[in-house]
């Protein structure tokens, strides 16, 4: 490692100046503004704010819908992680084994993940409608009327519908696995094959453990992403029926975009969400740092 040169600190400040500017304007100012607003009752015009103390926070923490939203965020993230570590992993391995039509398969799995999520969610919500939706119509067409369900208005099914939608977007995890599989040493496989192990066993007991760092990458990426994607719910179930599929994004969005003096309340919700999001990031940084330390 090169030694530190005199004046390098000041150079660093200059190189980091644009970063500081963006962070100051978009994050530091935002947090400061949110904290201030969260103690008031005010409309989106931001005039005539009334101080209400901790009331907004009290309301939030006693609102079952908000707590459900946070819980759902984590549950949905867990579900998409579970699907990725199994289905996406299996698809990536199969595609890496030199099966025909690879490029086409990649395209099929990747396109949904790159399409505007708003669009995918809208298509799903139309597809899942009880009477005219393609899914139920398809089921009826092949005589499986018994399997038709109220996908969007039954709490349990609506929850599964959102999970299905998230599962539909596993293109990116497939890409992660594909890239890392290419760098994997395969001589272990040969040994396993010589031992007479079947493909499923090899996938589960040999390759899967070897991809540990990719699993972590995928898990973290999905956990982070789960806080950002709110269109998934907004445009499929709309958070319903009765908030059973609400996530923090749709919850906050609803209060920001509705008329009335709801902005203070929305700000308090934002502050709590930011705290949770930062906590997730801290965990992630801790994990990374340990890995970094271990690898040195």
């Amino acid at each position: 490692m090169r030694r530190k040169l005199p004046g390098e600190g000041r150079t660093a400040v200059l190189f980091l100046a644009p970063l500081f500017l963006v962070y100051a304007l978009y994050f530091a100012y935002s947090f400061w503004f949110l904290i201030g607003t969260s103690f008031t009752k005010v409309s989106i015009g931001f005039s005539n704010a009334v101080a209400v103390g901790w009331k907004n926070y009290r309301l939030l923490l006693t609102d079952p819908a908000f707590l459900t939203a946070i819980r759902n965020n984590l549950l949905f993230a867990a579900a998409s992680i579970a699907v990725s570590l199994t289905v996406a992993f299996a698809i990536a391995v199969l595609l890496a084994s030199g099966i025909g039509g690879r490029r086409l398969y990649y395209a099929i799995f990747l396109v949904p993940a790159l399409t505007p999520i708003a669009l995918v969610a809208t298509v799903f919500s139309r597809m899942l409608q009880y009477q005219d939706g393609a899914l139920n119509q398809g089921l009826r067409a092949i005589g499986l009327d018994g399997l038709t369900e109220h996908w969007l208005t039954d709490s349990g099914w609506a929850f599964l519908a959102v999970i299905g939608l998230l599962a539909y977007l596993i293109g990116l995890p497939i890409m992660y696995y594909t890239a890392d599989l290419a760098a994997l040493r395969t001589d272990v496989l040969e040994a396993a094959v010589l031992d007479g192990a079947g493909p499923l066993l090899i996938m589960r007991n040999v390759i899967h453990p070897m991809m540990r760092s990719t699993h972590i990458t995928v898990t973290l990426a999905l956990l982070l992403g789960s806080f950002r994607a709110f269109e998934v719910v907004l445009l499929s179930t709309g958070g319903g029926p009765d908030n059973t599929t609400e996530i923090v994004g749709t919850y906050t969005y609803r209060f920001v975009t509705s008329a009335g003096s709801t902005i203070g309340y929305a700000s308090a919700a934002s502050v709590l969400v930011l705290i949770v999001a930062m906590l997730v990031s801290v965990v992630q940084v801790l994990v990374t740092r340990t890995k970094r330390g271990a690898s040195r």
């Binding site: 208005t153 319903g240 009765d242 609803r254 509705s258 009335g260």
Partner: peptide
Amino acid sequence: SAFSAEVGKKVL
């Protein structure tokens, strides 16, 4: 406004 929308969900 927002209250009406909330009520609607509960009616459903």
